[in-house]
Amino acid sequence: MSEAAEKFETAMPAWKQWQEAPWGRLRYAIAEANLLRNLGERADEPLRVLDLAGGDGGDALRLAARGHHVTIADYAPAMLTAAAGRAAAAGLTDLVACVEADANALPADIVRGEFDVVLCHNLLQYVDDVRHTLAASLAPLRPGGLFSVMAINRHSAPLTAAVREMDLAAATAALDTDQSRTEMFDASLTLHTAEEITRHLSDLGCQDLRHYGIRTVCDYIIDDARKHDPAFYNDLERLELALTARHPYMHTARLFQLTARKHVE
C-alpha cells in the first residue's frame, strides 16, 4: 500500500464523520442536483458511470440508488472496502463495482469503457499535473458524455481564513498562493480556480461547460452547531441550491463544480 493510500485509510473515521456532518451532506446533495439537471430526462435511464477517486462511494451510491451502474476507481483499498460495504448494506451490490486503480493509470478495459458519465471529484488538488489528469479522466467517456469535475476553490481560501479562522494575515497571504494543506488526510494541496480548469477543459475539446458553486454560504456561517438543526439545515440546503448556478456567488463558494460534454467528432 502506498504512503498516500495509508493516509486515507488512517483518516477513514474522521472522513465518515465529515460526510455525515451538515457540510458533508451539502457537498453531496448539491453535486447530485447539478448532475441531474445536466442529465435531464436521461437521469431516469440506467447509465454507466465512472467515479474516479470515488473513495467510499459518497457520490456513487447516490447514483446507484437511482438505478445507474457505477464503477468506483480508487487507489486506497480501505476506501473501496468501505464503498463495497455501503453498497451491500443498501442493496446496491449489483450496481456498484470497485476497482483499485490510480486515475492517472487506469486499466485498459476502463479506458475503453465508453462511460456515459465520468466524475472527477476532489482529486485535482492532490495531483501534480492537472491537465494530464483531466485528459486521463476524459479518456473513458463516450463522445457526448457528461464530465463532472469538482475541486476546492482557490478564491475561497482568503475568505475562509478571514471569516472562519479570524486570521487576517493568513487571508492576505492566501491571496498570492495556490498552496494549502488538509489536516484530515495529512497532505499538501494545490488549489485551483474554475476559470483555470475551464481553460484546460476547453483546450481538451470539451463543450457546453457550466460552472456551479458548492457550499456557497455554508462555510461562511460560523455557527456550525446551528447547522445540525434540521429546520435550519433544510433552509440552508434550499439556499445553496438557489445559489449554486447564480452569478456571482459560485465564484467564492468553497468548492467549484464544472460540467462539460466530451467533444463529438
Rank of each mutant, 00 (worst) to 15 (best):
I72H: 05
I72S: 00
D74G: 06
Y75M: 06
L80V: 06
A82C: 10
A83D: 01
G85P: 04
G85F: 03
R86K: 15
R86N: 13
A87K: 08
A89G: 14
A89N: 13
A90Y: 11
T93F: 01
V96D: 04
C98L: 13
E100K: 10
E100H: 00
E100R: 07
A101Y: 11
A101L: 12
A103D: 04
L106F: 00
P107N: 04
P107S: 06
D109Y: 06
G113P: 03
G113K: 06
F115E: 05
F115Q: 01
L119A: 05
N122T: 14
L124K: 02
Q125E: 12
Y126V: 10
Y126A: 13
V127E: 11
V127H: 10
H132M: 15
H132D: 15
T133V: 05
L134H: 08
A135T: 15
L138M: 10
L138T: 03
L141R: 02
P143D: 02
G144N: 07
G144M: 05
V149K: 06
H155G: 00
P158S: 11
T160P: 00
T160I: 14
A161P: 02
R164S: 12
E165F: 11
E165A: 14
L168F: 13
A169E: 13
A170L: 11
T172Q: 15
A174W: 01
L175S: 05
D176K: 00
T177G: 00
D178Q: 05
S180E: 10
M184N: 07
A187N: 01
L189E: 05
L189C: 03
T190R: 00
L191Y: 07
H192S: 11
A194M: 04
